[in-house]
C-alpha cells in the first residue's frame, strides 16, 4: 500500500486540508473508490476506511491482480466533517456539485478539479454516496443511465438491487456523471446510513466492492460469498409513500422488510396532544427500500419507498 497526499489546501487559521489516497497494486488504472465528499458522510468515510483495511491485507496476500492499480480516497471534505457541517465550511457549496471542476475558479471548483485529476482515467469508478432525505436505505448500487454502460455490470456487486437513474440537469455536475463522460464506468454504492455508522451495511458495502473487483479481474479473491441475486429497476419504479400529515413520526418498518398492501407501516402523532392522527398503510405488496427515520415529519415528506413485488 502506498499512502499519497493527493493534494492540500491551505487555510488561514486551520490546519491544511489534506486529501489522502491509498494505492494498491501497480500498472493499469483499474479501479478508483471515493468515500465521503460531504461533511455528514461518516458512514461513507467509514466504509472506505474499512475497504482500505481489507485491501491492505489482500495486497499482502498477493490478491491484487498483477498489473492492476486500485486507488481509494476515503474522505475529501473532512474540513466540514470536523466542524459538523455538511457542505464546504466557508461558502456551503457542495463539492459533489462541482465536477469536473475548474482549477482557475472558486475553491470547491478547484477541489473538484484536483480530485478529478487524480481519480479520472480509471476503468472503474465507485463512490460511496448519500441522499439528502433523512432516512435509511436498502444497500444498493445506483447507475446513472447515460447509455454508456450495461446495467448487468451492476449485478456483479451482489447487492439486492441495481437502481438505474435517468440523469436530471443537476446531476451533470456530480462525480458519477463526469466519470462516465470521461469514460470511467461509474457506480454509486449506497449503504444504509449516512450520519451514523451502521456496521452491518458497512460490511455489506465493503464485500460488495470486493466482489465486484474480483468479478472484474482486479482482485483474485479465491472463494468469495456470492452475494444476493440482483434485480435491476429504474428509479421511476420506486413508488414513494408521502406523509399525509405532519407531526411526530413512529416508524414500524425498516429497509428490507416485506410489507403487504394495507399493512400499517407507520403512525403520525399530533405533536402537542400525543394522539395518533394518521395510520399510514402500504399501498402495495413489496419490500421496503427507503424508510424515513427522523422523529418528526412534514406533510408530503417521502416516508417510504417500496419496491413492488411484481
Amino acid at each position: 500500500m502506498i499512502r499519497d497526499t493527493l493534494f492540500t489546501l491551505g487555510s488561514l487559521y486551520r490546519d491544511d486540508l489534506r486529501v489522502t489516497g491509498y494505492r494498491f497494486g501497480s500498472g493499469e488504472k483499474a479501479a478508483c473508490i471515493v468515500g465521503a465528499m460531504r461533511g455528514n458522510e461518516v458512514q461513507q468515510m467509514y466504509v472506505a476506511s474499512q475497504l482500505v483495511r481489507e485491501l491492505r491485507a489482500l495486497e499482502a496476500q498477493g490478491r491484487v491482480v498483477p498489473g492492476k492499480e486500485i486507488l481509494v480516497v476515503p474522505s475529501v471534505n473532512h474540513f466540514s466533517m470536523n466542524i459538523g457541517k455538511r457542505f464546504w465550511s466557508l461558502d456551503n457549496t457542495d463539492i459533489n456539485r462541482m465536477f469536473p471542476g475548474y482549477d482557475q475558479s472558486e475553491t470547491t471548483q478547484r477541489i473538484a478539479a484536483k480530485l478529478f485529476e487524480h481519480v479520472s482515467g480509471y476503468k472503474l469508478g465507485m463512490q460511496f454516496a448519500s441522499f439528502y432525505m433523512p432516512g435509511d436505505f436498502l444497500p444498493h448500487v445506483k447507475m446513472m443511465d447515460l447509455g454508456y454502460q450495461s446495467a448487468e455490470l451492476g449485478k456483479q456487486f451482489g447487492l439486492p438491487y441495481v437502481i438505474l437513474r435517468t440523469p436530471r440537469p443537476y446531476d451533470s455536475t456530480t462525480l458519477n456523471y463526469n466519470w462516465q463522460v470521461w469514460e470511467t464506468t461509474a457506480f454509486s454504492v449506497y449503504s444504509t446510513a449516512t450520519d451514523d455508522i451502521d456496521e452491518r451495511s458497512a460490511r455489506e458495502s465493503v464485500e460488495a466492492v470486493l466482489r465486484f473487483l474480483d468479478a472484474q479481474g482486479v482482485l483474485n479473491m479465491g472463494l468469495m460469498p456470492q452475494g444476493e441475486p440482483s434485480t435491476v429497476i429504474t428509479e421511476d419504479h420506486l413508488p414513494a409513500v408521502h406523509a399525509p400529515a405532519s407531526g411526530v413520526y413512529r416508524r414500524f418498518m425498516h429497509p428490507g422488510d416485506r410489507v403487504r398492501r394495507g399493512q400499517v407501516i407507520c403512525e403520525i402523532l399530533h405533536p402537542l396532544e400525543g394522539e395518533v392522527i394518521e395510520r399510514v398503510k402500504s399501498p402495495v405488496d413489496g419490500r421496503v427500500f427507503f424508510a424515513h427515520h427522523s422523529p418528526l415529519v412534514s406533510e408530503r415528506a417521502v416516508i417510504y419507498k417500496i419496491i413492488t413485488e411484481d
Partner: peptide, 10 residues
C-alpha cells in the same frame, strides 16, 4: 401551503 411538523405551516 405545507404543514411543518409542529404547529406551523410553510
Amino acid at each position: 401551503c405545507v404543514n411543518l411538523p409542529v404547529d406551523e405551516q410553510m
